[in-house]
Design a binder for these strands. Sequence first.
DNA 1: AGGCAGGTGGCCA
DNA 2: TGGCCACCTGCC
Length: 290
Amino acid sequence: MGWTDWTPLPLATPFTQEALRETLDGGQAFRWQFLEMESCWQGIWGRFVARVVLDQDERLLYRIPEELMPQAAEALKNYFLSDTNWGKIADRLPWRSDRELAQAIEAYSGLRLLNQPFPETLLGFLCSATKQIPQIKLLCHKLADSLGEEILPGGPLALPTWEKLAQTSEASLRSLGLGFRAKNIKKTADAIAKDPAVLLRIEHLPYHEAHAALLDFPGVGSKVADCALLFGARMYEAFPVDTWILKVLEKRYGLNDWKKVQLESFGRIHFGPYAGYAQQYLFARERSLS
DNA sequence: AGGCAGGTGGCCA
DNA sequence: TGGCCACCTGCC
């Protein structure tokens, strides 16, 4: 597999090493790994694969298998939303009156939200219930390894499509170590198989309707729905409340005894239309402090 | 060895 | 509505 030369990917908002690591490996995507031999990150999304690294001037460089060019380069720019000015968006968050948020933004300046394919984002987060990030990554790897298609001959494997998952037995899924998540994935796959355009439809619904529609899938609750919409459908008002954010809102915002739905509303109201971006900053900081 | 982990859904008052 | 708990599996 021949790779292109390293090529700059101009970004409206530059990365730092910390922000790049947190973006690729902080839990919004599960298919990036740091290759020690190559000293770079390799990621797989959809039917694409790419390697990226920050050079000494903190410019993002990428290389892609020649066979996937030139489409993959365009797909990579879209995946990173290279034209989006995240610095400007961060400036619109209420950091001036919110010390916690200000500190998180300072610590992870340059953090981005990736633009991932919606179907596989949903799959990743269906694997995530009561799992830590390394375990979720492992499950995704096993799914791709045993059920995914080769992106290039002998090369990396894509995550399985929902169609493929619908053709797979729950027992086969369980054998991958998915545990009780296997049943949810299987049933969700069956539902999608009966209505193949459903995910495309949901992806283009207004946030609240999309969220409600996702709850119909077994294993998809409010948190998983918000993650799928935030990381896979560019719905930045989604504010996933997981155990980490729960801790942040309790300990640092004093919101003890609040219900989960109340905290979700608080997030969207307090942080505004980019609440999910604020969430990602707070999530990163809280995890690093623990 | 037992409890816990980027949750969800079912059951019971 | 609100609280409790089972659910797979691996890791500390």
